[in-house]
Amino acid sequence: MSDKNMPTWEVFLQPKTGAPFQHAGNIHATDEEMALQNAREIYTRRQEGTCIWVVKTEDIVSSNPDDQESFFDPANDKLYRYPTFFKVSKKAKGL
């Protein structure tokens, strides 16, 4: 008797229409339909979502937390991307 592990899928829920999808956890399933149904049974028993995405865990591409510093380095010296970088007269309204 084979006892293969069923593939795992990552589950993302959209809490309400228009909101961004959020990672909820994972489930086991052999195909897409089962993945959606299992995700529904496990993560939305109390109407936690309006839509579900399931993605095979092996298909997720992640950055490496060990490289966090160098990976995000390009963003950390560009204060001019924030509105507070610019000095503007208090009299100027609507900016």
Partner: peptide, 23 residues
């Protein structure tokens, strides 16, 4: 009882992220 099953599954999922399989 269905919730308890769900809780077991959330927790198995969390355990599996540590590199052990469900089986």
């Amino acid at each position: 009882v269905q919730d308890e099953a769900g809780h077991g599954l959330y927790l198995y999922s969390a355990t599996e992220t540590l590199g052990i399989t469900r089986n």
